Amino acid sequence: ELREAFRLYDKEGNGYISTDVMREILAELDETLSSEDLDAMIDEIDADGSGTVDFEEFMGVMT
């Protein structure tokens, strides 16, 4: 189920989504998050600083 959700956002099928897209997902899930909260969450999610979120990083957030 998580893989299907990931595929919805990984429109190009390249195995990752951008941190911008991940930020939008988080904002949709919790509309009360401030910009600073979102920045901090993205920094934590994208631990390797690649600017992308792969499936493993995505799973870590969603579980």
Rank of each mutant, 00 (worst) to 15 (best):
E1Y: 14
E1A: 13
E1P: 10
E1V: 12
E1T: 13
L2S: 03
L2M: 10
L2T: 02
R3T: 09
R3L: 15
R3F: 11
R3H: 11
R3A: 13
E4T: 05
E4D: 14
A5E: 08
A5G: 03
F6H: 08
F6L: 07
R7V: 13
R7S: 14
R7I: 15
R7T: 13
R7L: 15
L8K: 15
L8I: 13
Y9W: 12
Y9C: 14
Y9F: 08
Y9S: 04
D10I: 03
D10C: 12
K11N: 08
K11E: 10
K11L: 12
K11Q: 10
E12W: 06
E12Q: 08
G13Y: 02
G13I: 02
G13R: 03
G13Q: 07
G13H: 05
G13V: 02
N14H: 10
N14M: 11
G15C: 03
Y16H: 07
Y16R: 05
Y16F: 11
Y16I: 05
I17C: 01
I17K: 00
I17D: 00
I17Y: 00
S18H: 08
S18M: 05
T19A: 07
T19K: 09
T19L: 15
D20C: 06
D20G: 10
D20A: 13
D20T: 13
D20P: 05
D20Y: 05
D20Q: 14
V21R: 11
V21C: 12
V21A: 14
V21W: 05
V21L: 14
V21H: 11
V21E: 08
M22Y: 02
M22P: 00
M22F: 09
R23V: 02
R23H: 01
R23M: 03
R23D: 00
E24N: 14
E24K: 15
E24W: 10
E24Q: 15
E24G: 13
E24P: 01
I25M: 07
I25A: 04
I25V: 07
I25L: 11
L26P: 00
L26D: 00
L26C: 02
L26Y: 02
A27V: 10
A27M: 13
A27R: 14
A27E: 05
A27T: 10
E28K: 15
E28F: 09
L29R: 13
L29G: 05
L29M: 14
D30E: 05
D30I: 10
D30R: 09
D30S: 07
D30W: 14
E31W: 12
E31F: 11
E31G: 13
E31C: 09
T32Q: 09
T32L: 08
T32W: 10
L33Q: 03
L33T: 03
L33N: 02
L33C: 04
S34T: 12
S34Q: 06
S35M: 11
E36D: 11
E36F: 10
D37S: 08
D37T: 10
D37P: 01
D37R: 10
D37N: 06
D37W: 08
D37E: 13
L38Q: 01
L38D: 00
L38F: 03
L38N: 00
L38V: 08
D39N: 09
D39M: 07
D39F: 06
A40G: 07
A40Q: 10
A40N: 10
M41I: 11
M41D: 01
M41K: 08
M41Y: 09
M41F: 08
I42N: 01
I42D: 00
D43C: 13
D43A: 14
D43E: 12
E44W: 14
E44R: 14
I45K: 01
I45V: 09
I45S: 02
I45Q: 01
I45M: 11
D46G: 03
D46A: 04
D46T: 03
D46K: 04
D46R: 04
D46S: 04
D46V: 04
D46C: 03
D46W: 03
D46L: 03
D46N: 08
A47S: 09
A47F: 09
D48H: 07
D48F: 06
D48L: 06
G49I: 03
G49T: 05
G49L: 06
G49M: 08
S50Q: 05
S50P: 02
S50R: 08
S50I: 04
S50C: 04
S50G: 05
G51F: 03
G51Y: 03
G51R: 06
T52M: 08
T52H: 09
T52A: 05
T52N: 08
T52W: 05
V53C: 04
V53D: 00
V53G: 01
V53T: 01
D54H: 08
D54S: 15
D54F: 07
D54Q: 09
D54A: 09
F55K: 01
F55A: 03
E56D: 11
E56H: 11
E56K: 09
E56A: 10
E56L: 10
E56M: 09
E56F: 12
E56Q: 11
E57Q: 15
E57K: 14
E57V: 12
F58M: 02
F58C: 03
F58K: 00
F58T: 01
F58E: 00
M59D: 02
M59K: 11
M59Q: 10
G60W: 15
G60H: 15
G60F: 14
V61K: 06
V61Y: 15
V61F: 15
V61R: 05
M62N: 03
M62K: 04
M62E: 02
T63N: 11
T63H: 11
T63A: 11
T63M: 13
